[in-house]
């Protein structure tokens, strides 16, 4: 861990790699005309990725299940969002539910 040059090199490659991944989409799209149907498909792909991110972040912790408090908080936030509650309420309710359950000793 005291190998600073190696750490710096890894961070540099990490940064360049991440930027390249972010830049790839806009760079590709500027070169080719993308048909309307393909654009819809790409929009759906982004939504599918975000939804999977929600599911894994809400229900999993590392390799295993995330316990009860976090999924319960996300569920409360999700129901409020579905009922078109204000965004602020969704965020605060999700955090408060998880924090409250943990305070009561729920994992």
């Amino acid at each position: 861990m005291n190998n600073t040059p190696l750490l710096l090199a890894a961070i540099a490659v990490f940064a360049v790699g991440t930027f390249s991944l972010r830049f790839a989409g806009p760079a590709l799209r500027s070169r080719y005309e993308v048909p309307e149907r393909a654009q819809q498909f790409l929009g759906a792909a982004a939504i599918v990725l975000l939804a999977a991110l929600v599911a894994t972040a809400a229900l999993m912790d590392g390799d295993g299940p995330a316990g009860v408090a976090r999924p319960a908080g996300v569920l409360v936030g999700g129901v409020l969002a579905w009922r078109k509650a204000p965004f602020v309420l969704v965020v605060v309710a999700a955090a408060a539910t998880a924090a409250g359950l943990r305070l009561l000793g729920v994992p």
Partner: peptide
Amino acid sequence: DALGLDAAFPAVLLALVLPALRDKS
């Protein structure tokens, strides 16, 4: 985690993608 922020983040993203999920496909 004690502040529940780990639950707030998935909830934020869920609230943001919900409108798009009204489309069945």
